[in-house]
Write a protein that binds this DNA or RNA. Structure first.
Length: 636
RNA sequence: GCCCCUGUAGCAUAGUAGCUAUUGCGGCUGAUUCGUAAUCAGCAGGUCAGGAGUGCAACUCUCCUCAGGGGCUCCA
């Protein structure tokens, strides 16, 4: 007999060699039905696995992260089988589970067409209907090589395996796999193949490009339908759709990747800058204005010429090679060098909103999230070494204020360390990495380490958030740099009269303003906070004879710096309300007989609620308070 | 840069086994003065992304270019 301990701490005896599924059944029929695989002492196993020794036992279902992964991985196998049946010459490579679903990379002469997805899905349904048993097999290396000898990718994988080589068979399909898997193909109830793309073998551009098919699966149809509905909803929130509907920005073929901000978009952009400037003045930053064009010698000094020349826009300046600046750091180093610096000048916080140009390769451009021309809320802070940690803490506070308090975002923190292409000594890098890690620990923040993902001049802390389509974007970044100050021979005179080299911190909190705007639009689904709304108040009159009162109120609001419009067209109230609502105007004020008589207004907010007979002066007051405090909405 | 898909008026769309194009919104004109998501009528608006080719004939088929989209790679 063996003793199994369940997650609730209860222990139960079973005969040795009992299958995991039987144990599940002994707990409950329902659990056995939902079971995907089991976990024994932390190791995932198939439900058919015979348990030979005592230990901690757990049944995994679709409610468990690991259960979802196994389920989707099994779906990937069903898809692979379907593809092999339809295109027997296809070579399977790898097919892992990702955040949203799974994919399989396939080497096939013929290219897949989107219509093929439906064909593959049909074949998958057949396989599911057959309810083929999925069996685990442990193979000796030479047997594995023999089975997969026609597939060089699998051979390459087999050659790398150190431990046991396992494979899973369903019908006449077999694939190399660590497992576990669901017991039979019939378990895969609801799935959808979502997209086709190219992908390089092992993610390396030098390797052959394979075809990747993505899919997702769920234990029942309802969950899948819900997922698909969410995707549809997310598409409506896409910043490109909102940007066009609200007339915020556009693009033109004549300058791909460079946004045109329309008047309403420009308001949002400028409001963001106004907000930052106010914060800057509270936090000791000094704003500067710098050139866009620089001779190449500057980029040689900074190291960008060597590392990023292909991504810079080149120009000719008096017959000398020059480039549009892709970033601000060298400009600020030059400003630092004007006039001798004392330790009393540090920390020196230099902020800049200059336009930056990066000649991104065409394939990577997209909407406002990846552009060629953009501005950052950039700042470079020059500190003495002993000020470094405090300054980093100071920046993290600033970041938290913006993201948590003002915009209420959830973010993820990553610490990126020394990349292969790096400048500077090992020792400097270690010091820089440690200072960032220490600051994170002091703030008790959770973070993930991204080995080798730092900038070429130093390590960094990045703040990432997800967009509505589940894609992750880097927003704020804090980078420690010991290299540029040396390259530019920056120095300051310390208390002891000695000349020392300062440390430079690169930081941008919103990141690119363009990208931040995109994320904001999606975050709020176009319903921006009052202070950012291009039009804050729209006044609608019931009939022309009330226009004077409305215009008076509009002027009053305008006088207080509120963006207010009067819609006095001879259209129906319903129509004017509808249009304002579609334009996501936060405060829609209607004015008619009653309002004029009683000096009130009727205020409609975007949720459709109407506050009738609201005293006019109190309304103006409420708007002013909301703008002053930058709250999302006016308190009515 | 690589793979795949897409490109019809300002926007959203229909369409043709190859004979220059549909509808709605928006715009303009006129009427309507109305109480919280579309008042009515009329009019204008398109070298069907651009170029080349095959046809008597191309928006439709082929090729090239450009742009957009989804991925891959990249992201100072």
């Amino acid at each position: 007999m063996i003793t199994l301990e369940f997650p609730d701490g209860k222990k139960k005896e079973f005969r040795k060699g009992i299958a995991a599924i039987e144990v599940a059944r002994s707990i409950g029929e329902r659990l056995a039905r939902d079971a995907i695989c089991a976990e024994i002492d932390g190791n995932l196993v198939d439900l058919g696995m015979e348990i030979k020794s005592s230990g901690k036992f757990r049944v995994l279902t679709f409610k468990d992260e690991k259960g979802i992964e196994v389920f989707r991985h099994s779906t990937a196998h069903v898809m692979a089988q379907a593809i092999m049946e339809l295109w027997p010459s296809a070579l399977l490579t790898i097919g892992p589970v990702v955040d949203e679903g799974f994919y399989y990379d396939i080497d096939l002469e013929q290219t897949f067409h989107p219509d093929d997805l439906a064909k593959i899905e049909k074949k998958m349904e057949e396989i599911v209907r057959k309810d083929l048993k999925i069996d685990r097999q442990v193979l000796a290396k030479k047997d594995a090589v023999d089975i997969f000898k026609h597939n060089p990718y699998k051979i390459e994988l087999i050659e790398e395996f150190a431990g046991e080589i396992s494979a899973y068979r369903q019908g006449n399909f077999i694939d190399l796999c660590k497992g576990p898997h669901v017991p039979s193909t019939g378990c895969i109830k609801a799935f959808k193949l979502t997209k086709i793309s190219g992908a390089y073998w092992r993610g390396d551009v030098k390797n052959k490009q394979l075809q990747r098919i993505y899919g997702i699966s769920f234990p029942d149809r309802k969950a899948l339908d819900e997922y698909l509905k969410n995707i549809e909803e997310a598409k409506k929130r896409d910043h490109r759709v909102i940007g066009q509907k609200l007339d915020l920005f556009s693009f033109d073929d004549i300058s791909p990747g460079s946004p045109f901000f329309h008047p309403k978009g420009a308001i949002i952009f400028n409001e963001l800058l106004r907000f930052l400037r106010e914060e800057y003045s509270k936090r000791g930053y000094k704003e500067v204005i710098t050139p866009l064009v620089y001779g190449k010698e500057l980029w040689q000094t900074s190291g960008h010429w060597e590392h990023f020349r292909e991504n810079m826009f080149m120009l000719n300046m008096d017959g000398r090679e020059a480039a549009l600046k892709p970033m601000n750091c060298p400009s600020h180093c030059l400003i630092y060098k004007k006039g001798f610096k004392s330790y009393r000048d540090l920390p020196l916080r230099i902020a800049d909103f200059a336009a930056l140009h990066r000649n991104e390769v065409k394939g990577t451009l997209g909407g406002m999230t990846r552009v060629r021309k953009f501005s950052q809320d950039d700042a470079h802070i020059f500190v003495a070494p002993e000020q470094l940690e405090d300054e980093i803490l100071h920046i993290m506070d600033f970041t938290r204020y913006i993201y948590k308090e003002v915009f209420k975002f959830d973010y993820r923190i990553e610490l990126s360390t020394k990349p292969e292409k790096a400048m500077g000594s090992e020792e400097l890098w270690e010091r820089a990495e440690k200072s960032l890690a220490d600051a994170l620990k002091k703030k008790k923040l959770e973070y993930k380490i991204n080995p080798g993902d730092g900038a070429f001049y130093g390590p960094k802390i990045d703040f990432h958030i997800k967009d509505t389509l589940g894609r992750s974007w880097q927003l704020a970044t804090i980078q420690v740099d010991f290299n540029l100050p040396e390259r530019f021979q920056l120095e300051y005179e310390d208390m002891d009269g000695k000349r020392k080299t300062p440390i430079m911190i690169h930081r941008a909190l919103l990141g690119s303003i363009e990208r931040f705007m995109a994320i904001l639009l999606e975050h709020y689904a176009g319903r921006l906070p009052l202070w950012l709304s291009p039009v804050q108040v729209r006044l609608i009159t019931v009939a022309n004879r009330f226009d004077d009162y409305a215009e008076e109120l509009r002027k009053e609001l305008e006088g207080f710096g509120v963006r207010a419009e009067l819609d006095a067209r001879a259209e129906s109230i319903s129509k004017k309300v509808r249009e304002s609502q579609l334009m996501q105007i936060p405060l829609i004020v209607t004015i008619g007989e009653k309002e004029v008589a009683a000096k009130t207004v009727s205020i409609r907010t975007l949720d459709g609620k109407v506050h009738f007979d609201y005293p006019k002066d109190r309304f103006v007051e409420a708007v002013m308070v909301a703008l002053e405090k930058r709250t999302e909405k006016a308190e009515l």
